[in-house]
Write a protein that binds this DNA or RNA. Sequence first.
DNA 1: AACCAGTGTCTCTCATATAGAAACAGAAGG
DNA 2: CCTTCTGTTTCTATATGAGAGACACTGGTT
Lengths: 250, 250
Amino acid sequence: MTLKTLDNALEILKNFTYAQPAWGVRELAKKLNISHSIVYRVLATFEEHGFLVQNEETQKYELGIKFWEYGLIVKDKLKISDLIFPAMETLAAETEESIFLTWLDGLEGICLEIVESSQKVKFAVSIGSRTPLYAGASNKVIMAYLPPDKQEEIIQHGLQEYTTQTIINPDVLRRNLEEVRRQGWCYSVGEYSEEVIGIAVPLFTGKGHIAGSLTVAAPEYRFPKSKVKEVSDQLRLRAREVQSSLNTIL
Amino acid sequence: MTLKTLDNALEILKNFTYAQPAWGVRELAKKLNISHSIVYRVLATFEEHGFLVQNEETQKYELGIKFWEYGLIVKDKLKISDLIFPAMETLAAETEESIFLTWLDGLEGICLEIVESSQKVKFAVSIGSRTPLYAGASNKVIMAYLPPDKQEEIIQHGLQEYTTQTIINPDVLRRNLEEVRRQGWCYSVGEYSEEVIGIAVPLFTGKGHIAGSLTVAAPEYRFPKSKVKEVSDQLRLRAREVQSSLNTIL
DNA sequence: AACCAGTGTCTCTCATATAGAAACAGAAGG
DNA sequence: CCTTCTGTTTCTATATGAGAGACACTGGTT
């Protein structure tokens, strides 16, 4: 069905991460328990195409600038900078809290962009980080609009308890998602990170499929429940503006 | 020597560009004059790993967010944002012109970062764009510090006349590079883009190999020759600052 | 309604490209 | 000078991919 050679190659590539962006041939072969000849051929081929570069000093292989180039194309395709970023900045100014743009990728959410609030507080989520779709407002509002079979796939894959607030009971989660969908937006408290609240609205493709979400996140202590409704209204207003331009490109 | 399957796969991937970021299976097969079965298997395998995604609407394949993720790792590895960007901003403020960070990748220069001058003028170079190493100050200062065999490889590969000022005579180019190396920085006028001058200084790895360059670019009409020496001094000063921190990571 | 020309996907078989062990060349350290 | 790493190359049996062709589906045209 699929190409085993390419499959192996991409599996090998997966080991070049943030935490370990440089690998020696035998070092990587040892970790994967395969012949170093295989690893060598894969790395050498990637290098020929500029996807990996061999550090002249250490002899180890590292990710090449080519990946960054392809990343630029992807980012451009999403039109984030032009369309959504201004709306995020407006929201950050209005709410004085941080705004997150989360995108659906596979069965996970990925943080594409953050506009920090003036009040500096660190969040556990950073640009590029992946999070499961069942925890936190930014993710749940996406999951709520997924087709049922995909929702079940996520649930069957297992629900991890990130905090004491994470919903790990499948039935409770299903009812919660239904409510989110009925309401059109999502409010959550400390489901993915302790003491962080989130208010999120969905963003759709032109065909009406879920594409991502726009989220206001704030530390729980400075966000009274009385403000939730007001902020959700602001969010929905800006999301509608963004949505019309998204319709033409997605 | 190399893996033909992976080689083909990456060759197929090369067709996903800025200009055409979405391809249908048969469409791409036709362009490459190969069986659509082959293309399908390659695209499907890339998709399984998140490097490509199939657009549900058009059925076409597009570059996946995974590339952007890997791009983040690469960008982080280069430490541009933390180390060099502040120096670029300082230089932009001091000179009131645009500052370019160019990096060596293969036998080309790639523009990693730009800090625009307050005086808005458009340049032909944008973030992510690749340029040959023999044209323009930002590139020539890199080429000047390459080992002779690589210089010759570039020259043998052919010199294209971007403007009337582009040096396309191999002997003239060789002498020019030698002079640049002796001087330690490079000044050029309209070699890659008409009516644009550039003043560039090299950046090195810890081992003393050329890594990239820092460039001041300006429209010719507002940049008197008398200012060249002054600006080159400013550039060299900031480059020295950046260099010390680069030594520890490259 | 029937047809045609598209599409992405899947199946099959033969030719071949790859896996994996083992050898090689070079560097670093004791 | 031996040991022990490293990345690289060679070799052959065999698992794997190339490529043609069929399939199921869609959208437009007659």
